[in-house]
């Protein structure tokens, strides 16, 4: 999938490109609003990641212009301005989501994927996900390891499912808070760690291969590490 990142700060642009490429996106860069608009008006991208404050055309103006030209490529805004008003402005101009700097990259990735899923709802969960000796059957709400069912509490299951939906990708703790408990991301995230420890005790501890990993300062990931 092709993503256009429009960000004037070279360092940030480079990091985003590297991160997105690691997640198997094709990434192109534009350093100002005018260049970004020229590229994006082709409609050739699956999503745009746009900094709000850009030289030339601002991010908001650029997206407004694109929408006026009937280009409806989904847009994820990045901005240092984080008041509700700023967020609303971003969404009103035609943005699909809004992330405030400083952001954690996994969050950018998660939100980008959420946007893409929203635009193409045609990718339902596979009937079966397999990671090493773990098998997840979403329809049956069943997780097994080495063919043996792992008994989880409802919250533990929700957490495991979230990690399994994003196998190999780091899930930020704020996403866990929002998805598993439906709370605002501003609650103390320490409780997430406790829940993760619980999950790990049931899902990982009895088995030799460890699948749930905590990346300090970043989030949680479920993957088969060799």
């Amino acid at each position: 999938m092709r993503i256009l990142v429009i960000e004037d700060e070279a360092k940030a642009a480079k990091q985003l490109k590297a991160g997105l490429e690691l997640a198997h996106f094709q990434v192109e860069l534009a350093a100002d609003g005018t260049a970004g608009h020229r590229l994006a008006s082709s409609g050739a991208y699956d999503a745009l990641v746009v900094d709000v404050m850009l030289p030339g055309l601002s991010g908001l103006q650029m997206v407004e212009k694109l929408r006026a030209e009937d280009i409806d490529t989904p847009v994820l805004f990045l901005s240092a301005k984080g008041t509700l008003e700023d967020r609303l402005k971003g969404l009103k101009s035609g943005g699909d989501d809004y992330i405030v700097k400083p952001y954690a990259f996994p969050e950018v990735l998660a939100r980008l994927q959420a946007i893409l899923r929203r635009v193409r709802p045609g990718s339902p969960l596979p009937p079966k996900v397999e990671v090493a000796d773990l098998t997840w059957e979403p329809d049956k709400r069943r997780i097994t390891r080495l063919g043996k069912r792992v008994d989880l509490t409802p919250k533990e299951y929700l957490l495991a499912a979230l990690l399994l939906e994003n196998v190999g990708q780091v899930v930020p703790r704020s996403t866990v808070v929002e998805t598993v408990w439906g709370l605002t991301a501003h609650v103390d995230p320490n409780a997430v760690d406790v829940q993760v420890r619980r999950l790990r005790a049931k899902l990982d501890d009895p088995y030799e291969k460890k699948l749930v990993h905590t990346l300090r300062g970043v989030g949680i990931v479920l993957e088969d590490r060799d």
Binding site: L84, R87, Y98, E107, R173, S174, V177
Partner: peptide
Amino acid sequence: HPILSPKEP
């Protein structure tokens, strides 16, 4: 709360 909820670094 769709908008005021995102992000905790």
